[in-house]
Design a protein around this nucleic acid. Structure first.
Length: 677
DNA sequence: AGAATCCTGCCAAGCTTA
DNA sequence: TAAGCTTGGCAGGATTCT
């Protein structure tokens, strides 16, 4: 059959064209399905691309949602990395950024960039020849330090055979060159309509003082086999993909904290297998912070390693300094319905790790040294458990002696004693949460986790309210359940439930408080000042801020009649001038109604006049018909007549027109602050 | 030191859903 | 229509900034 031939054709341009097209799409935000938040910038991208280019993203996207936040890389650097990912080029990056770029590349598992850190043999100069070999030398010492130079780094296609090693072709001084050629300005689109899921991390990456083995970083589909390659970074709590063994990680996080790693326990990386983190390290939540009503952003590492879920490496824990764990079924260790992932240093990508938030109370800080303890937890799956419902039982928790904390070092709240959990972890937890992870304080600094009931996962994903009372309506598609509210964990301390922000680990007694707080992370809503460019994550912040623009003085001292801008000032005035306690039983000040902007968009001013003023988004006041003409309640259809605030605000004489002062009667509320953590 | 901002428990009012 | 949820204001304190 001589007539039949096999013909092959290769489009040599295809890959580059494809990449270019993708880059263009990225530039237009087209088909972007992930938003990476770095510092204040949002980068839209395609998760497929990122995951194919970065081992970090590969793991991260196994569990993360559509929005991830990176805290270990600067926006400027990430932009370069992203440009590389979408263009295969690094063009004219300033050499003084090279170190950082390389480091970030390592952390993100972008092989090419990470390999730039392989020190050239000559050290200082940027050789134009191909570097080679996956040297294991320190990545932290990339040679170039000249801040005045820029370096163009390209990787000629002809170098394919070089196994991906970067080729630095030029080194020259071009300080003035703008590197915008390939820079794509990703629109900071506020895709609030996106089903945005926030994934954040507050843990600064640990320095990887040792080198990461560049040659092994690029594992698009990391497998356990690749894990060991990262061990070299262990001492530094290595960044990306550091898949050290559990023991290593624990040892790391426990015993070694890089100085710059404020507050944080290193995160344990998840196993490469998607959706199945082997290890979960839970740091002590910030319960103490909020419970102590003070949060200071202090660095410290609370020593807690509270829980480790480990898989297939049971033997590793033998050397643990802090925790011993037994393996637990890893199924759903990170529930896939949790789209909010606290992603820490890259190593923790796919874990549902809890990270010590940066703002750790001083108390927690100091206590660190003292609280460190071994904790032995074992997990058992109760027979009655539903699949996926893992109970954690404490077989032994070294009882910490709180008294030790009262030593000088110990902070206030520590001195006052930590609350020690007394509940039966498994049972109480089970009764309290169905939709989210639950932690229980199982020791003075140790919290436990219960994996969400798998059976509920279907609907649990959309279940906003995890409280058990959501009895009825199991319809998975309840409109009401629209939002994924996996923004918190529940922490049970002595039977009391606290809501722990999944991102920063702050604890809240009220879920609403947490929800409100969470916008600080997600920025799902923004509250811009109408007078300046500032934007606030909470409406109240904006309101208070705007007061400074308007100069409005709503707080009036009843004793002398002076008006002040806020409570603090009037309270201070009352204390200092009148030597009285403003928070006492008798009202010593009057709060006049807000004159400017505090009327909700959807509220009316309950005036009896024929028309009702309404504030629209811009703070403009309109009148709308009172009738049931359908327009009421909506501010979106601004009716004709515009009025001013003075039209609706009656500059009171002295009689409090607004008796309504929610604070009245609310000031006596007893804040049950759970012990003095 | 004072101002500005942030934090968090609580509340009330409006909105949504069953 | 009731219950649950969302939103935003308030108190009172803490923290950060100037």
């Amino acid at each position: 059959m001589e007539g039949k031939k096999l013909i092959s054709a290769t489009d040599t341009q295809y890959s580059s064209v494809l990449l270019q097209t993708l880059n263009e799409q990225r530039g237009h935000g087209l088909f972007c399905d992930v938003t990476v938040i770095v510092e204040d910038r949002k980068f839209r991208a395609h998760r497929n691309i990122l995951s194919a280019s970065s081992t970090y993203f590969h793991q991260l996207f196994s569990v993360a949602g559509q929005v991830v936040e990176l805290s270990f890389v600067r926006a400027e650097i990430f932009a370069e990395i992203l440009n590389y990912i979408y263009s295969s080029k690094i063009i004219s990056i300033r050499s003084d950024l090279l170190d950082e770029l390389i480091k970030s590349g390592q952390q993100l598992g972008v092989k090419f960039i990470a390999d730039l850190g392989v020190p050239p043999a000559e050290g200082k100069t940027m050789p134009s020849e191909v570097k080679d070999g996956a040297s294991e030398t320190s990545a932290s010492s990339p040679a170039q330090k000249d801040a005045e130079t820029q370096v163009s780094v390209i990787r000629p296609e002809s170098q394919e055979g070089m196994d991906g090693m970067p080729v630095i072709t030029q080194s020259f001084s071009l300080h003035g060159i703008e590197y915008e050629t390939t820079k794509i300005t990703v629109s900071d689109s506020d895709d609030e309509d996106d089903d945005v899921i926030f994934c954040s991390e507050i843990v600064p990456p640990k320095e990887c003082t040792k080198d990461t083995n560049a040659a092994t970083q690029n594992q698009p589909c990391p497998s356990p086999a690749g894990i060991s390659d990262q061990k070299s970074c262990g001492s530094g709590g290595s960044p990306h993909l550091a898949s050290t063994t559990a023991a290593q990680k624990l040892t790391l996080s426990a015993s070694r904290r890089s100085p710059n790693q404020s507050s944080v326990e290193s995160l344990v990386s998840a196993p490469p297998q998607h959706l199945t983190p082997n290890i979960i390290v839970l740091n002590k939540p910030q319960l103490n912070a909020s419970l102590n009503a003070s949060s200071s952003h202090q660095t410290h590492v609370t020593p807690m390693i509270n829980l480790v879920e480990e898989k297939e490496q049971p033997s590793n824990n033998g050397s643990l300094t802090e925790v011993e764990t037994t393996a637990v079924d890893d199924e759903e260790a990170v529930e896939d319905d949790v789209d909010i992932i606290g992603s820490s240093s890259p190593g923790s990508v796919s874990t549902s790790s809890l990270v010590q938030q940066p703002s750790i109370p001083k108390a927690a800080n100091t206590e660190g040294s003292g609280v460190q303890k071994k904790q032995v937890v074992t997990f058992s799956q109760e027979p009655s458990s539903k699949p996926g419902d893992f109970k954690i039982k404490i077989s032994d928790v070294l009882s910490g002696n709180n008294k030790e904390f009262s030593s000088g070092i110990a902070s206030k709240h520590v001195a006052e004693g930590q609350k020690i959990i007394t509940l039966d972890t498994a049972t109480e937890i089970e009764s309290l949460s169905t939709g989210c992870k639950v932690y229980a304080n199982i020791g003075e600094d140790t919290y436990d986790i219960v994996i969400p009931v798998k059976g509920d996962s279907e609907e649990g994903e959309a279940k906003p309210d995890e409280t058990p009372r959501t009895s009825g309506g199991d319809s998975p598609n309840k409109k009401r359940m629209k939002v994924k509210h996996d923004d918190h964990y529940e922490l049970i301390v002595d039977g009391r439930v606290y809501y722990i922000c999944i991102v920063c680990k702050r604890s809240y007694a009220c879920l609403t408080s947490l929800r409100r707080h969470f916008n600080v992370h997600s920025w799902e809503k923004k509250y811009p000042c109408r007078y300046c460019d500032k934007v606030f994550p909470l409406a109240e912040y904006r309101t208070k801020h705007e007061i400074h623009h308007t100069g409005e003085r709503r707080y009036q001292c009843l004793t002398c009649g002076k008006s002040f801008i806020n409570y603090q000032v009037v309270a201070s005035h009352i204390r200092s001038v009148h030597s009285q306690d403003p928070s006492g039983d008798t009202k010593l000040y009057r709060l006049h109604p807000c004159r400017s902007l505090q009327i909700r968009q959807y509220t009316y001013i309950s005036d009896h006049s024929s028309s009702i003023p309404v504030i629209n988004q811009g703070g403009i006041v309109y009148r709308v018909g009172t009738g049931k003409d359908g327009t009421e309640g909506t501010t979106s259809n601004p009716p004709a007549k515009q009025i001013t605030w003075d039209d609706i605000f009656i500059p009171q004489g002295n009689e409090a027109i607004f008796k309504q002062n929610p604070s009245e009667g609310s000031t006596e509320f007893e804040f049950v602050i759970p012990e003095s953590y």
